[in-house]
Amino acid sequence: MPRWGMVVDVKRCIACWSCAISCKEEHFLPPKVFWNRVLISERGKYPASRKVIYPVLCNHCSEASCVEACPTGATYQREDGIVLVDYDKCVGCRACLVACPYQQRTYYDQEKKDAEYFPGQGKTQFELLGEEIYPFQVGTVMKCNFCVERIDEGLEKGLAPGQDRDATPACVISCPVGARVFGDLDDPGSEVSQLIKVHSAKQLRPEFDTDPAVYYID
């Protein structure tokens, strides 16, 4: 069984937000909900200051705080490491949301359901279609699912996640600078494992002790 993971090379990243916006399209996310974001800041003092860019998403941690916090089992981890929320089981207590040190979860309430991309002008065809073919449940928590639909359907078709476009997360394939690589962390020969090894890629805030599946080359 693979353990799916991602390597983000922030040296390549130009903070164009393609990952975040492609993700929103892939999952018909409502306004102001991001399963992928780009954190932009700077370090150091003038003139030696440096811009810092970190695209962030759910880390699909091995020791996931959200899984530990969920009282109903709605948030669970698959054998391949992907952490998912079963909307049908979610009671909406948001314990997972509060527990996530990376703050990668969103509570989908009526306000988010009602929100429009063009406020006060009604929902677009895009939003209406999303509600029909990729519905969310009010009163539950949502987050990045590592494009599990693409992975599962891709595997069914005999495709390789991380290599074949249709089996790879949307944020990875849409990155215009190839800053994201997806693959099996447990396979030492995979591109992700190699990149982690060669570039000493690091997890974000390893001190949280959650063992994220997303690594960064910086």
């Binding site: 109903t72 009671v91 909406g92 207590c93 948001r94 009163g139 539950t140 928590v141």
Partner: peptide, 11 residues
């Protein structure tokens, strides 16, 4: 407070 109080028994 709960988003889906009907599911509280699941807890």
């Amino acid at each position: 407070y709960l988003g889906n109080p009907g599911r509280v028994l699941r807890i």
